[in-house]
Amino acid sequence: MTAKLTRILFGALIATTTVSSISACGDDNGKGTVTVTTWGESFIEDGLPSSVFPKDNWSVKYGKFLVDYHSVSIADENNSVAAKLAHSLVFDLTKKARGNPKTLFTAELEAKAWPNVSYQVGPISDDATAGDLAADTEVTLLKTDQASVHVEGTATSPTGVTKTFNWSFSPATLFQGCHGEQDGKELEGVLVTQGGNQIIELTVHGDHLFYDDLQSEEAVPRFEALADADANNDGNITLAELDQVPLYTIPLEKGTYGTGALGNVNTLGDYERTLSRTIGHYRGEGSCNSKEVSGQ
């Protein structure tokens, strides 16, 4: 709720600022501005409190949450692209923006409906550079690991046990047909208004990496099964360790880890890699249709 309120207030602030500038200029000529930003919400910036994990009461604090935006495009009803990201940008969503949000690009577009907005997370490409507040070392990290998403963090149990994780996820995902709320109405893509400045926030949901079912509406975040995967008990859970845990060996009381209709998710490692493809949202709680990208 706080995150949503923040977005609303930020949107109102932008709108107010934009209206002021329009009054000053008065020559918008049927165009408006679109600014594409990204935000990981308080879950990624501040952490996931134990209340987010209602079944086992773990908590998680991210140290890094790197996302490679490989492409972003805004197109009309005929899929004619009017604006797109020039090259890949990497962001660390744990870093809080000061003032302006972390921005991918700004474009001036004809004032009308642009119903086809899509973006792609990964694969990391040679031309990727650091986005706002990200460091070159973080771009290098993704390139070295050939990762689309990289997360680091610490999870803490209700009794004070801590587990660290440091995971690079390679799958690339296309998020297309994005739809979300604009001015209180659900719509496809973005509606550019004359002289207006629409913020398209590519929202990343940091809680998704811990849900205990890939398809169920009743899924909840849990951590216990992930903690148990620390086979050498060194306090750090690796993806290699997760790959050694068949989902059928997880006791039901630690989560169903259901895979829905998916047929190729057999271990906790497969499971986390699949979850990493679900983190992308649109304008807060809005969503897109996701597709695996292959053959890049």
Binding site: H205, D207, H208, Y211, D213, L214, Q215, S216, E217, A219, G260, A261, L275, T278, I279, E285, S287, S290
Partner: peptide
């Protein structure tokens, strides 16, 4: 409308 997390089926 259900926005099931995280798979969105």
């Amino acid at each position: 409308p259900a926005y099931a997390h995280p798979g969105h089926y």
